[in-house]
Design a protein around this nucleic acid. Structure first.
Lengths: 151, 151
DNA sequence: TCTAAATACATGTACATACACTTAAATATA
DNA sequence: TATATTTAAGTGTATGTACATGTATTTAGA
């Protein structure tokens, strides 16, 4: 669907502004696509993201700050996301022995199992629902990074 | 900043998956950029979006459903966003005369003033903070719409 | 060494999203 | 016409974001 149809609007102040709205709309579209798949596993997009981050370092323990620095949305409130993972026994908290201010987190075996199934499903979605070849993907990555140049 | 730095991760399952994460991260970056500017005007990104939609049809009245269909994030809870605009006297609600189920909304003169100032600022941001020419913007629009082809 | 500053995490609040449900009104159908 | 269905908006709840503040611990400086 064209952006114009999606937001029922034909007028944009500039083509740059249209590109901005298109990024925002595509992010919402993608997040919704993924979230709908994750529902089966009782996970939200953010919880899935944290589990992936924990799995990436497993069996190493990670502190809250380290998880935060790997999140896509930098203002994510990591302690609260971990609260929910802990309730579902997918992650575990403990206090760091080297620095008692730090809470260190690990993914549980149950968390690893759930993540494995969820990841397979999400990878399938990426493969099937997204109509892009590697060349397009590379071009898109370049343009997005160009957009954020002044970051 | 490259995506790899932004999310402290070098490994991606595929270049398509990287493009997905890049879209999500860029959307967060852009939303944050805009939100920071809107703070001066006491507006959130979503409230700004609704004001723009109302202004686009002004002086015509719009019902809640019509506003919703023009939102970037389709699952936005429009009645609650309007609650906050009404509290700030930037928008006004009334019941439709032709269909009493409908609530019709209009932007107030104060809303128009605030929106004008905010829009000028946001347009400046788009011009100054985003490093893209029209050609790049057009290419980005095309790739994002390609990504969503199966929508 | 003792105290001030910085750091790490948790928590409170306002706003927003996602989704289910309720209520009132309009429309369709028997 | 009377009733059932559909539609529009509002509301409740769980989750998340954005940001300020609180508390314990560590680090730095006098």
């Amino acid at each position: 669907m064209k952006l114009e149809q999606a937001i029922q609007s034909e007028h944009f102040d500039s083509i740059i502004q249209k590109a901005g709205l298109n990024v925002l709309y595509t992010a919402w579209w993608l997040k919704t696509l993924v979230s709908n798949e994750l529902k089966v596993f009782g996970l939200t997009h953010e919880q899935y993201n944290v589990l992936r981050i924990l799995k990436g370092k497993h069996p190493e323990l990670m502190c809250v700050r380290d998880i935060g620095s790997r999140m896509i949305e930098k203002s994510s409130n990591v302690p609260r996301i971990i609260d929910r993972l802990e309730l579902k026994k997918l992650a575990e908290r403990s206090t760091s022995v080297t620095d008692k201010r730090e809470t260190v987190i690990t993914i549980t075996p149950k968390g690893i199992d759930v993540l494995k199934l969820a990841s397979q499903q999400i990878n399938l979605i990426y493969k099937n629902a997204i109509q892009m070849n590697d060349e397009d993907s590379a071009a898109l990555n370049n343009l997005l990074e160009k957009m954020r140049t002044k970051e």
